Amino acid sequence: MTAAQADLHIDRPSVADGAAFWRLAKESGTLDLNSSYSYLLWCRDFADTSAVARADDGTAAGFVTGYLRPDRPGTLLVWQVAVDPAHRGRGIAARLLDALTDRVAAEHTLSCVETTITPGNTASERLFTSYAARHGARVEREVLFGTGLFPDGPHDPEVLYRIGPLSRSAR
């Protein structure tokens, strides 16, 4: 681990992190921005399946939110991943994803990770395909929500990435 990586601590978020999650999502430039209220609720209700990377001063440098699918409790759906622009290029998103799935796997049976990615989001495509490679898993892709399903105007399709079965670390 490099000195730049050592200055971060990854843990469970608290409600107090909700505002920072909203800000990071807003500044990401790619994520769909949810209401600030939803990030507060997320940090309260889904803290066990989410993670925050904190800088030495305690500020949020990045986050990953997720939940265990009710109909597939061995599947962690990763909702959003964001890293503060000042902290990008240091592998924080990958560290967050690995730390979260390791923690969830230690507390639950975890066999699969899912996420959705819009076409052209190469940073997310790289993050999740490299995650699959590190964990010895296949990646299956299919359109989950087509453009026509979104009621609030033009929206790119959301492509489901199903990563599994997991074989290293996150099990």
Rank of each mutant, 00 (worst) to 15 (best):
L149T: 14
A99D: 09
R72P: 07
A106F: 02
C112S: 01
W79P: 11
P70Q: 09
T122V: 15
R126K: 13
L110S: 06
V104R: 07
S124L: 07
Y161V: 09
G146C: 11
L77W: 12
V143S: 08
V113H: 07
V78T: 01
A99K: 03
V159Q: 02
Y131M: 05
V159G: 04
S111Q: 09
E140A: 12
C112I: 09
L144I: 02
A94S: 15
R90Q: 15
V83A: 02
V81G: 10
G136V: 09
R88P: 06
T75P: 13
I92W: 12
G74F: 11
A137Y: 01
S124H: 03
P85V: 05
W79K: 10
L100E: 01
R134S: 14
R95Y: 05
I117A: 00
S111L: 14
E142G: 00
L160V: 11
F150C: 09
I163W: 00
R95Q: 15
P119W: 00
G153P: 10
G136S: 13
A94D: 12
D71W: 06
G74P: 03
E142M: 07
L97C: 08
D84I: 02
T147L: 06
A123W: 01
F63R: 03
I163F: 01
R126W: 00
G91Y: 11
A86R: 14
L149P: 05
E158F: 10
A132E: 06
G66D: 08
R134V: 04
Y131H: 06
A105W: 04
L127M: 04
N121K: 06
L110M: 10
P73V: 09
S111M: 06
